[in-house]
Nucleic acid binder design. Sequence first.
RNA 1: GGCCCUAUCGUCUAACGGUUAGGACAUCAGGUUUUCAACCUGGCAAUCGGGGUUCGAUUCCCCGUGGGGUCACCA
Length: 465
Amino acid sequence: MIRTRFAPSPTGALHIGGLRTALFSYLFAKQNNGEFFLRIEDTDKARSKKEWETVIFENLKELSISWDNEAPRQSERGEIYKKYLLKMLEEGTAYYCFCTKEELDEERASLMKLEKAPIHQGKYRDFGLESALERIEKGEKPVIRFKCPKDQDVIFNDLIRGEIKINTSDIGDFIIAKDLDNPLYNITCAIDDAEMGITHVIRGEEHIPNTPKQILLEEALGFEKITFAHLSLILGKDKKKLSKREGSTAVSIYLEEGYLPEAIINFIAFLGWNPGTEKEIYSMEELIKDFSIKKISKSGAVFNIDKLDWINGIYIRNMDIDKLTLKCLPFLENKEGIDNKKIVLALKDRLKKISDIKELSLYLYEDEIKYDKELLFWKDMRNEEVKESLKKALNLIENIEEFNKENLQEKLTITAKESDSVGGFMWPLRVALSGQKASLGPAEIMEIIGKKESLKRIIQAINII
RNA sequence: GGCCCUAUCGUCUAACGGUUAGGACAUCAGGUUUUCAACCUGGCAAUCGGGGUUCGAUUCCCCGUGGGGUCACCA
């Protein structure tokens, strides 16, 4: 059975790139009737926080990415790692290294000067476990390094990129643990993937350099082979790895601003993947069905918020009106006599994200709207003409009993067509009702704010001219 | 700098070695509208450069160049 995993570090919010990794891992597992696991990589005790873990869980749930296991925390698996570390030390596939940080910094600097890769040369590689233990006895605190085979090609077949080959001389004896109780990323990752029975690791491209290390560790420990797939990075407008400078990278922010989970999933899925047809609107079920890891593109994709806006707009427009209203409520005011559902219905076509409705609906709630009187003038109308036009509207509206937008629109249209110009009648009225350069139509506004408020606003406009 | 990954419109991307290089977003123009959206119609816009292989390269190979990643006692 195929089993994938998503292994975030709870050192920050769920990142857009992390979400895509999780989504693709999820889709790949599900379409193969496999399992999708979660694992919390919190070996960095200083930076890991329980709060972030909670945020990650909740974001994933909200986005309908569900996992099949009880997500283990690496911080609670110390004994397991220790067992493997001891085994490697005894078998000689790992060794204690007594180099100081200063020594290592120096080594790195001098290698860089020679324009060589700063690979650790393995001073204590053949020091021997016995002698090492003696020094530890005396109180020295060594780190544990992997004894990397010399000059050997590590080859793996990446599902997305094909064959990747890296020579061990470009890797060196990397540190696998600070000490027996503090293992580092590569070793915990290799051990957990093996123990969890992970068959396919789908992750970001930045992990390509880690892959041969993990494969080497896999071999040293006698684990099953894992298949890897490395996703290209999501880039910002500057074509660099997406960073906070360009809007947010945190999924939670998008959720809060009112990007719908379905839209986010749809958009993210299409960042670097497409079905090869012209269909662009995809539900999670459809994604599971049509997703193909082979069709993932190899180059980085720029995160284009305009396209997210467009997709989100489509989802908003297609959403059930009651559900949409519920989503909008946090961004709307509460005013006696005003039906927020009507506002949502009237405004939903112009929303790119749910939070937009706040700004767009403000004038509907205000007790006294303020605007520049010049705004009331349609083209080159004179004072008297505007006043006349508004009075005509006032008379008409005063006599309308059935105050819904269809009826209002009908009556307004008749009068407008009898007037000198349709715009000359409609524009001042709309501005009188909204105080805005751009707004809903007069009939829509009146239905929402009601007859009394409508008349009040028209009279106010007549008075300021 | 070493190693690795990568390269089609501004952006996301299609194109068994043979297409007028297609679609979407954005943009521009027009239509519909009192306005703004939504909607409809249309336009602009791309194969990084140089060598090969081939009857024929966006496609395969090599070399450049550009972009990115990574070289932690972070993950």
